[in-house]
Design a protein around this nucleic acid. Sequence first.
RNA 1: CGGGGUGUGGCGCAGUUGGUAGCGUGCGUGCUUUGGGAGCAUGAGGCCGUGAGUUCGAGUCUCACCACUCCGACCA
Length: 569
Amino acid sequence: MKLDKLIGERFKEKPADSVIESHGLMVRGGYIKNVANGLFSSFNIMRRIANKIETIIREEMDAIDGQEVLFPVVLPASLWEESGRYETVGRELLRFVDRNGSPMLLGMTHEEAAVHLVREYGQSYTKYPFMVYQLQTKFRDEARPRGGLIRVREFTMKDGYSFHTSHEDLEEYYERCHEAYEKIFARAGLPEVVSVASDSGMMGGKVAHEFMLLTAIGEDTIVTCSCCDFRANMEAAANIVLNESIEPLLPLQKIHTPGTVTIEEVCKHLKLPVEKSCKAVIYQKAVTQEYVVVFIRGDLEVNETKLRNHLKEEVYPATLEENSGLVAGYLGPHKTDKAIMLFDSSLRGINDLCCGANEEDYHFTGFQIDRDYGEVEYYDLAKAIPFGICPECGNSSLVILRGIEVGNIFQLGDKYTAAMDMRYTDENGDIKIPIMGCYGIGVGRLAASVCEARRDENGPIWPMAIAPWQVHICCLRADDDASKTYADELYENMLKNDIEAIYDDRIVSAGVMFSDADLLGVPLRVIVSPRNMEEAVCEITSRDKSIEMKVKLDEVIPTIKNLISQMLG
RNA sequence: CGGGGUGUGGCGCAGUUGGUAGCGUGCGUGCUUUGGGAGCAUGAGGCCGUGAGUUCGAGUCUCACCACUCCGACCA
């Protein structure tokens, strides 16, 4: 490919609406163009990257006995009625009618289609296990697309569905798939992607993992432990705690001996400067008689109407017994040793509850205490509490991180196969319901994640395995005959040697040429110029600047070949 | 779904008390340049988001709508 024939413009300035770097760089570099909210077209550069990622995914899925198939984007509503999801899934499922008035939908996930495809095939236990996967467009009418390709409404996804005759078999295969995913992310240049236990959400099933690229711009919150291997997303961590009633996870109880919470400590917990006085305003619910303690900056007032609306229950200022330890609206030292403060994340809209002037100054949160200061009832885990207690190792060592979810795997169980009447006959002649796993990777999101993690201020630094081209030939001074002649020849030779090269022979200044090359992020660069021609050399550099060498003209091709194979690992 | 913001050449922006639009960049052409986004000259390119209203007159004021966007909620 010659650069001056490459369709798509490169820009000096990033678009005004880009918030994260990968989005800005991919627009500036001519990778993608916004069409509408959450909808993008891809230029050739983007397609080349996506194609390479898809190839890696195919190879690893085939290696664990997957078979590529293809489901339709448009599905009849009747298929989703079989599983019950036509009714239960919200407006992110785009529903419409065809010319005959039949209700249809755009596939946002394909469990139903997968069961539909294989339920005749899978009538005998001898066929199991098996897995089908596809790489195809999904449409989800997201309420809020964001971050360029990180969260879009239409995207390409690899989704795979496995079918098994026992949970043991599913678990075994699930583990193989987990390993395949690790290989995929490592090959795509993100070996640091970690898997975390996750909640299965609308998918149903029990065990699930999300594969996360840890980054500050991530939209998912992950709970990890600095002492052991515990990793979970926020929802799963909450469930673990709720199910097991691990008392030490309550944040304030751990940080302090029960009954000794001070105003300073509350301020610290709420990340408020201590000098800004913090008060605890105490309400009591009319029906359940539970106390609700709202911590609020001292100079603000609680908006009681909003509090009522939020709790969906009448509240009134609490009348406290004298020895309750909650004195005069301030949370002072406790006198009852049974009292336990709870972070109540069910009050998550609480920033709306206060009234005052400066919106960003509102930091407070709610705690809920049961009436008797005895047995604890609470809504949720102590979310977003650094140094909370790890449910695995028990140390006060939880760390809260942000991440981008680049893939996920679920042990679905028989939710879909049972609902859709898929059956097989086992070796004893009994009729059984197969169980399923499902496995997804977002291709565009993965590409954007690599861009986010592998870049500098001038552009992306693509790993060799997914780079749009392997080598970028810059012919400085293409108006110089010797340089141009050699560069033309070099380009032809690369093509003959199956080296993927993009060739820039435009007559432009070096600055323009290098800036464009940086935006394309091709891992290896060969610089041909009059200055180099005098020495009978080319410069070979890597995009990440780890390689800078001068190579004799007749050694360029072998050197490049060698470097490519090294960089492919 | 709740709360903000913004809509003006391809991109980034300015536009004062209302008087039919300007800057940077990019694009075309010519000459000069050429190792990190060159210089001069010249040219093209705009229904100022849409629709009503106020006014002699609206990019500017009023109202409604639409689109995009940010924060939050939600999110196989």
